[in-house]
Nucleic acid binder design. Sequence first.
DNA 1: CGCAGATTTGAACGGCGGGTCAAGCCGGCG
DNA 2: CGCCGGCTTGACCCGCCGTTCAAATCTGCG
Lengths: 208, 208
Amino acid sequence: MTTRPRPQKDRHQEILDAAARVITERGLAETRISDVAEAAGVSPGLILYYFESKDRLLSEALTYANDQFYLRMSREIRRIPSAKEQLQRLVDLSVPGYLPEYGRLDEWALWIEVWVRALRDPQMAKDREALDQRWRQSIADIIRAGQAASEFGPGDADELAMRIGSLIDGLAIQVIMNDSQVTPQRMHRAVWDVTARELGFDLEPAAT
Amino acid sequence: MTTRPRPQKDRHQEILDAAARVITERGLAETRISDVAEAAGVSPGLILYYFESKDRLLSEALTYANDQFYLRMSREIRRIPSAKEQLQRLVDLSVPGYLPEYGRLDEWALWIEVWVRALRDPQMAKDREALDQRWRQSIADIIRAGQAASEFGPGDADELAMRIGSLIDGLAIQVIMNDSQVTPQRMHRAVWDVTARELGFDLEPAAT
DNA sequence: CGCAGATTTGAACGGCGGGTCAAGCCGGCG
DNA sequence: CGCCGGCTTGACCCGCCGTTCAAATCTGCG
């Protein structure tokens, strides 16, 4: 009770990581406890020792993975000084498969699993909303910063963030699905183009 | 062999309809054959008499349902003479829950199930791409018609269709998820607003 | 009416996989 | 060194559900 806050945290995280990997690979529906155990290099029984049920494990793994994803992106963007370049970087990172070294296609696929699950699982619904809100928020923050620095034109930052974020979501789906019409490059151009128009700047630095 | 083209088609469709209803209600993952049987008012065995496996049944049901959805919308829009009003109607119908009498929230949810499944099922991936392509196509057609009639400004209709369609998708997800920030009204305004700007017309008829 | 084939039923099978548990293991502490 | 409690194992249990199948029913036709 007293000194047990973080000792087993390792296992906890290891399992969540393993679960995220398995879900990415096999899909939520096809993920078995034994798969996660194998991926984590432990016995199936141990999984249920750390998580009270398969459902809880999978839910936690999904939010955990998306959280990590966000944190990684967020950390990187925070370093960049100019708002416009921050936004540019955010767009680059938001296009699945655009930067080869980053964000493999499958990571995005986890979002879709989250959505499906959120349709029925109230906890997941709540988590999803929080995740999305934070995402829109960071876009809005960049926009506000850019407006303050006169890099962008005026406009309701939250509204603009919603629009840009949603456009990204909608296009990302097609890209993840490997749609023959919607390639990463085409998505990138579209997003950046619309962003420029909505924020009222020119898009000289077209390529990255 | 000779006179069997359509006699059992009834059952086939009845079952697909039932399956779509059950999936909408319970979610793909939780749908059992016996649920579909019950919903269709037949015995479980019969389901497997008409469909070679649960998987096939569910896949077919998903594409079938989305197909119906599209057909319904398409049929209605074709009646409208002006391109701008066609587009307006399309937007109205595309916002989940915007028109109370139409397109219940759950119908949209089927799309998400399609996406998840398409990630792993090649047949479903192919169907999904066809469905999406047709959808973008109809938007593009309206745009082209509007441009020909000088209702809209110039621009690559396919590109514009992709952008508008994707924005709709991205926003619709949030609305389906019941996001507290993204209400149907707000989505509607955003879509129509962006559409107006991209197509270069004014948005006097704001409300429907 | 009686037969053939298609349709429909529902009981039964079989495997899969989530969850349980009794038994070992291990590290620290007295 | 030996004990204690948390950690870990893997075999086992058990219900669920997709699928099969033999039998019942129905349909139209001669």
